[in-house]
Design a protein around this nucleic acid. Structure first.
Length: 907
DNA sequence: AGACATGGTTTTTTT
DNA sequence: AACCATGTCT
C-alpha cells in the first residue's frame, strides 16, 4: 500500500517524545485490554490518537483493522482530523465513528439478515412518542397515567439491558401476542404488564414500518452479531483493534457490543505472548474514560462498565493519567473538593503544573436576570479591558431552560453569542415535516411519517380520513400506504375525501419517481418535495410572522442537503436522512481553533469534553443545580456532583460561579437556596464579589451598619486587580436600567421607575436590583416584587431581541433563528416581494427573490430594510446562496440576515 | 375539516 | 411561559 509508507517510516519518538511517563506508557502498551483512566484535562484525546498512530506504525496494523468509537460525531470528526494530521490520509480508511453510526453502517450492510430491509428509518424521540401514543390508543391505555415518555423510558431500560420484548412478555403478560388488537390488563395496580405489552406491540410496529429507534441501533446490531455467526466472524476478523472513548458513558448494550465485536467471548485461542493482536483471537481493546465524569446514567450508562473493566476483560491493565494540563491548581482544588464528597469512589487526585492561578469568582445575584446581567458585564470587561476574545468564554447551566435569561442579558449588552442545544434544527416542525416526506419516500412502510404528512400541508384530510385509512390497513394487516394504494376498495369514504387521498397518492408517487431518478441528489429531492407539496408556497403566503423563519429553515435544509451531497462520495437520499437522524447538539460547535467570535452557551452535559479559558457556571442553587429531581436520591445526587465536577474542570484559567436568589420556575418566582456544591468548595478558593443576595442579607439582619455598607459590598471590591471599571457609576446606571434600554435614565434605585405597573404575579421577576429599592420601601415580604422585567422583554428596544448571532449551526452552515420565534416579539408581517418564478425550480433559486449579490455589500455600507429601516452593514459572509450579512439597525438591534431572503435595498 | 379557545401539564440532562 | 390535548364553534 503506497499510502502506508509515509506513516510506517515515522519515528516512534515523534509519537511519544512530548508525552509524560503515563501517557507514553498508555500509547505503547501491548496487551489485549487496556483501560486508560483519564482524569479531566489529562490529554486523553491526545493519547488516544497517538495510540492509534502507534498501533498502525509500531504494531503494523492496517487502518481498516482499527475501530475507534466516540460518543458524538464531533468527537469523531475531531479525532479523524487529528489522526489525519498525524498519519495522513490513511486515517480515512479507519472506522472512526460513534456507536450509533457504526451500528448503522453495520446494519445497512448486514441488517437484511435480521429482517431490516435497506432504507430502514431511524425514528427520533418524537417519532417514537407518536408511535407509543398510537399503541396506547389501541389498547385504551391512559396516557395520563402512563405518559409516552415514561413508557419509552421503560422500554429504553429494557433495551439497554438487552431484554427483548418476548422475554418481557413472558414475565408480565404471557398470553399476549403482538398484533393483537386488544388486551385486558388484569389488575390496574401493576404497571409492568402495560409496559411489557406496549413494548412488544411497539417493537412489532417498528418492524412493520421497517424502522428502528436509537436504542435499537445498538440492540439490533448485538442481535445481528449474536444470531449470525458468519457476520460476527467477519467483523471480529476485520477489527483487530477497538478503542472506545468516554467508556464511563457506555450502557450495558454498548458494553456487550464491544465484547461481541472484539470476540472476547468467542474463545478463540490466542497467543499469550503475542506482541500484537494477531490474525485471530480477540481484538485488542482500549477504553478511555473517567468514572468521575460519568453523567449519563439517566440514559442507561452503567458506571460498572468502567469500574469492572479489569474483571471483565482478561489480562486487562489500567494506566491512570492524573496530570492535568488544562486548569490552574485553584480550579482543580475546587473540582477535587467537590468530587471528594462522592462516596464509593476510588480516590484520585488531579494535579497540575500550571500554578495556582486566579481565585474562583463567586457572585450571588438577586434574580436570574441580574445574574445574567452581571455575567454580561464581566464578559464585556474581559473582552474590552483585557482583550479576551468572546470565543474564549463559555456560559454553562444545568438545564436548557436557563438559557433564556442569560441570552437576554447578553443581548442587552450587545455581546455576540452562540447557543448550543435546545430545540434542534431537525426537530423544528417544518423541517421535521419535510424530513417526514423524505422518509416516507424512501420507506413507504413508515406509517408514522406517512401519517404525519398526510395532511401537511392541509389538504382536507383530517382525523376521519386518517382513521378510515388506518382501520382499513389494520384489517388487512397492512401498512398505511398500502391502504392509500387500495383507496378505491375502501367503503364508506366520501368522494371528496377520496379525491384528496388520491391527490396525496399522486403526489407521493410522483415524488418517489423523482427521488428514484435523483437518488444521488438529495438537495434536488428536497426542493422537489417542498415545491410539489406546496409547503413552501403556503408558508410564503402565510400571514404568520413565524412562517418567515420557517421558510428560511426549509431553505437551510436544502443547503444542508447540498452540502452533504458535496462532501459525501456515494450520496443517497437514505444516507442523507441517516446523518440528519444522528446529529447531536455538540456537533454544531465549531471545530477547535476555530474562532467563532462568540460567547458559547450550553448545558453542562454538552460541555463535556470541551474547555474554555473562562467559564461561567451559573444557577448554582439547590433545585437548579443539583436539580430538584435529583436531590433526594443519593445516586442521582452523586451524578449531579459529577456534573459539577465536569463543569468546574472545563475552565482553564478562570472560573465564575454564580447563583440567583430568585428564579422563575414554571411561570412562578421561587426563592433559591445556594447550591450545596458551593459549600463543598473550600471558602479560601472563592473570591465572593457578592456573597448574599439583598433579600438574604435583609433576612439575616444587617450585617454591619446598614444600607451603605450593603451598597459598597454590592459594588465595591469589584476590581480584580487591574480593572478600573466598576464601583458606583457602573453599578448604578446599568443596574437601574436593566429592564429596558441601557441608555434610559433610571436612578440607581430605579427599579420601580417602570415597575409599578405589573401585578405581583407576573411582574415579580423584578428588574433593577430590587434589593436596595425595596429595602427602603417595603418591610420584607415582597422584597423583589415590583419590577417589570418580564414585560421589558420585547418592548422598548423593540425587536432587537435575539438578534445577536442567536443562531445554531449545522455542518458548518448556519441557520438564523428568527427573533420572533423566541422573544415573542410581534412583528408586523412584511409583504414579500412577488416571486414571479416560484414554480419549477429549486428553492435556492426561488428563494433568491431579490437579486442581491453578496459581493456588492461591504462593511460600512448603508442599507434599508422593509421592516427594520435604516442600517449599516457590520459584516458579510460569503456562503454562496446562503450568504449572510450582519446589519446594525441602531435602536432596533443588530440582525443577521440571509441575503437572498432579506427585503433590503442598498443605499 | 379546521380554526380557535381552554385547561392541564410541564423540564433535567441526550445518542 | 410554552406546549399539548381536548372541546366548541363555524
Amino acid at each position: 500500500m503506497p499510502q502506508d509508507v509515509d506513516f510506517i517510516a515515522r519515528p516512534p519518538q515523534e509519537l511519544i517524545g512530548d508525552l509524560n511517563e503515563q501517557q507514553a506508557q498508555a500509547v505503547q502498551y501491548r496487551g489485549p485490554a487496556l483501560l486508560i483512566g483519564a482524569g479531566a484535562g489529562s490529554g486523553k484525546t491526545r493519547v488516544l490518537t497517538r495510540r492509534i498512530a502507534w498501533i498502525l506504525t509500531q504494531f503494523g496494523a492496517w487502518p481498516s483493522q482499527v475501530l475507534a468509537i466516540t460518543f458524538t460525531n464531533k468527537a469523531a470528526a475531531e479525532m479523524r482530523e487529528r489522526l489525519g494530521a498525524l498519519i495522513g490520509g490513511v486515517a480515512d480508511r479507519m472506522w472512526v465513528s460513534t456507536f450509533h453510526s457504526a451500528c448503522v453502517r453495520i446494519l445497512r450492510r448486514d441488517g437484511e439478515q435480521i429482517g431490516l430491509k435497506s432504507g430502514f428509518t431511524i425514528y427520533d424521540t418524537a417519532d417514537c412518542e407518536r408511535l407509543i401514543k398510537l399503541v396506547c390508543a389501541d389498547f385504551n391505555i391512559d396516557i395520563k397515567r402512563f405518559t409516552p415518555r415514561s413508557i419509552l423510558a421503560r422500554i429504553s431500560d429494557y433495551k439497554n439491558q438487552l431484554t427483548d420484548a418476548s422475554t418481557a412478555l413472558a414475565q408480565y403478560a404471557p398470553d399476549f401476542k403482538p398484533g393483537m388488537r386488544h388486551y385486558s390488563f388484569g389488575q390496574i395496580g401493576d404497571p409492568e404488564p402495560v409496559y411489557a405489552v406496549v413494548y412488544a406491540e411497539y417493537q412489532y410496529r417498528l418492524a412493520l414500518a421497517n424502522a428502528v429507534d436509537f436504542d435499537d441501533l445498538i440492540v439490533r446490531t448485538v442481535e445481528l452479531l449474536r444470531t449470525q455467526p458468519h457476520v460476527a466472524e467477519y467483523y471480529r476478523h476485520k477489527f483487530r483493534y477497538i478503542l472506545v472513548d468516554e467508556y464511563q458513558d457506555t450502557n450495558h448494550a454498548q458494553y456487550v457490543l464491544v465484547r461481541e465485536l472484539a470476540g472476547v467471548d468467542a474463545h478463540e485461542p490466542s497467543d499469550p505472548m503475542a506482541t500484537e493482536a494477531g490474525k485471530s483471537g480477540p481484538a485488542w481493546v482500549t477504553v478511555v474514560g473517567d468514572s468521575d465524569q460519568s453523567i449519563y446514567a439517566f440514559r442507561g450508562a452503567d458506571i460498572r462498565n468502567i469500574q469492572d473493566f479489569e474483571k471483565d476483560f482478561p489480562d486487562a491493565r489500567t494506566i491512570m493519567l492524573e496530570q492535568n494540563y488544562r486548569s490552574t491548581q485553584t480550579i482543580l482544588d475546587a473540582a477535587n473538593a467537590v468530587i471528594a464528597h462522592n462516596s464509593a469512589r476510588k480516590p484520585k487526585k488531579l494535579w497540575t503544573a500550571l500554578g495556582e492561578g486566579d481565585k474562583i469568582i463567586g457572585y450571588a445575584a438577586d434574580t436570574a436576570q441580574l445574574e445574567a446581567h452581571w455575567i454580561a458585564q464581566q464578559i464585556l470587561h474581559l473582552h474590552e479591558e483585557k482583550g479576551l476574545p468572546y470565543s474564549d468564554m463559555a456560559i454553562m447551566y444545568r438545564a436548557n431552560a436557563q438559557s433564556r435569561s442569560l441570552e437576554e442579558g447578553l443581548i442587552q449588552a450587545h455581546i455576540p453569542y452562540q447557543l448550543i442545544g435546545g430545540t434542534k434544527f431537525y426537530e423544528r416542525r417544518e423541517v421535521k415535516d419535510a424530513i417526514a416526506y423524505l422518509q416516507a419516500i424512501v420507506n413507504p412502510a413508515d406509517d408514522i411519517n406517512m401519517r404525519r404528512i398526510l395532511n401537511v400541508p392541509k389538504r382536507g384530510l383530517g382525523t376521519r380520513a386518517e382513521s378510515q385509512l388506518t382501520l382499513f390497513a389494520n384489517e388487512h394487516n397492512q401498512t398505511f400506504w398500502w391502504a392509500i394504494e387500495q383507496l378505491e376498495d375502501i367503503e364508506g369514504m366520501s368522494a371528496r375525501t377520496a379525491n384528496a387521498v388520491r391527490a396525496f397518492r399522486e403526489l407521493m408517487t410522483s415524488l418517489r419517481t423523482f427521488a428514484g431518478e435523483h437518488d444521488s441528489k438529495p438537495s434536488e429531492i428536497v426542493a422537489q418535495v417542498l415545491e410539489q407539496s406546496h409547503m413552501l408556497e403556503l408558508l410564503r403566503k402565510s400571514e404568520d410572522p413565524q412562517d418567515e423563519s420557517r421558510v428560511e429553515n426549509l431553505s437551510q435544509l436544502q443547503s444542508v442537503a447540498a452540502e452533504f451531497e458535496q462532501n459525501t462520495p456515494d450520496t443517497t437520499l437514505a444516507g442523507f436522512l441517516e446523518t440528519t437522524a444522528l446529529v447531536a447538539d455538540s456537533d454544531q460547535l465549531p471545530g477547535e481553533g476555530h474562532d467563532s467570535g462568540k460567547v458559547t452557551l450550553m448545558t453542562l452535559h454538552t460541555a463535556k469534553g470541551l474547555e474554555y479559558p473562562i467559564v461561567f457556571l451559573t444557577g448554582m442553587e439547590q433545585g437548579t443545580f443539583p436539580h430538584s429531581r435529583a436531590m433526594e436520591n443519593m445516586d442521582e445526587l452523586s451524578e449531579e456532583r459529577r456534573l459539577a465536577y465536569v463543569g468546574i474542570t472545563r475552565a482553564k484559567r478562570r472560573l465564575y460561579l454564580t447563583r440567583a436568589a430568585v428564579r422563575a420556575q414554571w411561570g412562578r418566582q421561587s426563592e433559591m437556596m445556594p447550591s450545596q456544591f458551593l459549600d463543598e468548595i473550600p471558602d479560601s478558593l472563592i473570591d465572593w464579589k457578592r456573597r448574599e443576595a439583598g433579600m438574604e442579607r435583609m433576612r439575616s439582619g444587617w450585617r454591619n451598619d446598614g444600607f451603605d455598607d450593603g451598597f459598597s459590598d454590592e459594588f465595591g471590591g469589584w476590581d480584580d486587580g487591574d480593572s478600573d471599571y466598576g464601583a458606583g457609576s457602573y453599578g448604578r446606571s446599568s443596574y437601574g436600567s436593566s429592564g429596558r434600554s441601557r441608555t434610559s435614565s433610571g436612578s440607581a434605585f430605579g427599579s420601580h421607575a417602570y415597575g409599578s405597573s405589573g401585578t405581583a404575579s407576573n411582574a415579580a421577576a423584578g428588574t433593577g436590583w430590587g434589593s436596595a429599592a425595596t429595602f427602603k420601601s417595603s418591610s420584607g415580604q415582597t422584597a423583589y416584587g415590583s419590577g417589570s422585567y418580564s414585560s421589558g422583554r420585547s418592548r422598548g428596544s423593540g425587536s432587537s431581541t435575539g438578534a445577536y448571532g442567536a443562531h445554531r449551526s449545522h455542518g458548518g452552515s448556519s441557520s438564523s433563528r428568527s427573533s420572533a420565534s423566541r422573544s415573542g416579539a410581534v412583528h408586523t408581517r412584511h409583504t414579500t416581494a412577488k416571486t414571479p418564478q416560484s414554480q419549477g425550480m429549486p428553492i435556492s433559486q426561488i428563494a433568491a427573490d431579490n437579486d442581491l449579490n453578496i459581493a456588492d455589500f461591504h462593511v460600512g455600507d448603508r442599507i434599508t430594510h422593509d421592516r427594520f429601516g435604516l442600517g449599516k452593514v457590520v459584516q458579510t459572509q460569503d456562503k454562496g446562496k446562503n450568504s449572510v450579512i450582519t446589519v446594525d439597525f441602531g435602536s432596533t438591534g443588530v440582525k443577521r440576515l440571509m441575503l437572498r431572503l432579506a427585503p433590503i435595498e442598498k443605499l
